[in-house]
Design a protein around this nucleic acid. Structure first.
Length: 310
DNA sequence: GGTAGACCTGGACGC
DNA sequence: GCGTCCAGGTCTACC
């Protein structure tokens, strides 16, 4: 008999909406079940992996069922990881401030962007999303979990740091990212990444951005994306998808550089919430083509979604 | 500071 | 079934 945790959430939290808000919800080891509207994934805890199934039985409350009993310390650890994934730290006043800045999302209530239980997983997922089409990202994460993850978990920094480049390339299909991922894993497991400093409100976004760009495999796009994953929304992460959005949806014209300038100007009024305003615009565009994201069937839509494919 | 070319994979396409 | 082309962001060398 496994442990069940009851977890309090901010009053405005909505599990289907807030999980199915960013592409990482379809990447292994996450699994969103459309039928039961639940999120399932294994978590790495003190005494080993435990599979969590998260549902929302009522407003303001989540239920997380595990496939084995959890000790007291593991329960605290699991609560922290779930809170990180679901951004339960973003209270209602944060949502209200965002909706004051951009009232377009007040009706749907959108504000939270799904992320991973650890910063390491978020950074690896970001690196596997660079210079590759979305199905490639999906495959890399599936293979990383399959070949390097213990009992279906995402690989730990120690495990990834000890993996041979040839294994990453041959089995996990990460290509030239092999050495960069190993170096990143080494930086994490040797304590060279100061997560407290990265997450401290006292640290300016620009300083975090500059630091992130020094990491292997992290350029301007990835650094902007990781800022968002750290809860810093004052910058955009501009990739080809953003440029496409600028042209097709916002009607911008000119060279990519000119469109980038127009995009930055367009989102400037949203101040510290620029990324959210941009992202929910993009996400709303996907949903007009494919229907609500919490109903997307993983194999059909979610693994192929980019505006180009839609 | 700006830019060209290499880095890999998987899918689309033509034969 | 095979070869070719293309999409995708980062990194290095070079100007």
């Amino acid at each position: 008999m496994g442990t069940t945790l009851n977890i309090a959430t901010p009053a405005d939290f909505d599990l289907p909406r807030d999980v199915c808000s960013y592409g990482y919800f379809v990447l292994a080891p996450n699994r969103w079940d459309v039928q039961s509207q639940s999120l399932t994934r294994p978590l790495n805890l003190h005494d080993g992996p435990a599979k969590a199934s998260i549902t929302q039985p009522a407003k303001g409350r989540l239920r997380a069922g595990f496939d084995r009993p959890l000790s007291r310390s593991e329960q605290a650890q699991a609560r922290a990881k779930i809170a990180r994934m679901l951004r339960l730290d973003e209270a209602e006043d944060h949502t209200k401030a965002f909706h004051r800045a951009d009232p377009r999302w007040k009706r749907s209530g959108r504000s939270r962007l799904f992320r991973s239980p650890t910063l390491f997983e978020d950074i690896v997922k970001t690196v596997t999303s660079c210079n590759v089409t979305w199905p490639g990202t999906v495959n890399m994460n599936t293979q990383l979990v399959r070949h390097l993850g213990r009992k279906g978990c995402f690989p730990t920094p120690v495990r990834l740091a000890r993996t041979r480049p040839g294994t990453l390339r041959g089995r996990c299909r990460v290509g030239y990212r092999d050495q960069r991922l190993i170096e990143l894993a080494n930086l994490f497991h040797t304590g060279h990444i100061d997560e407290h400093w990265l997450q401290s409100p006292a640290t300016p976004d620009d300083d975090v951005f500059d630091f992130l760009k020094t990491l292997p495999g992290i350029g301007p796009y990835a650094a902007g994306n990781i800022l968002m994953l750290l809860g810093r929304y004052s910058r955009l992460a501009i990739d080809t998808e953003t440029i496409r959005h600028g042209k097709a949806v916002l009607g911008f014209t000119g060279s990519d550089q000119q469109i980038t300038t127009q995009l930055n100007a367009h989102y400037e009024p949203f101040g510290p919430f620029k990324f959210k305003s941009y992202w929910f615009e993009l996400w709303a565009h996907y949903e007009t083509k494919q229907g609500p994201s919490h109903l997307w069937k993983r194999e059909e839509t979610a693994t192929a979604f980019t505006a180009n494919n839609l």
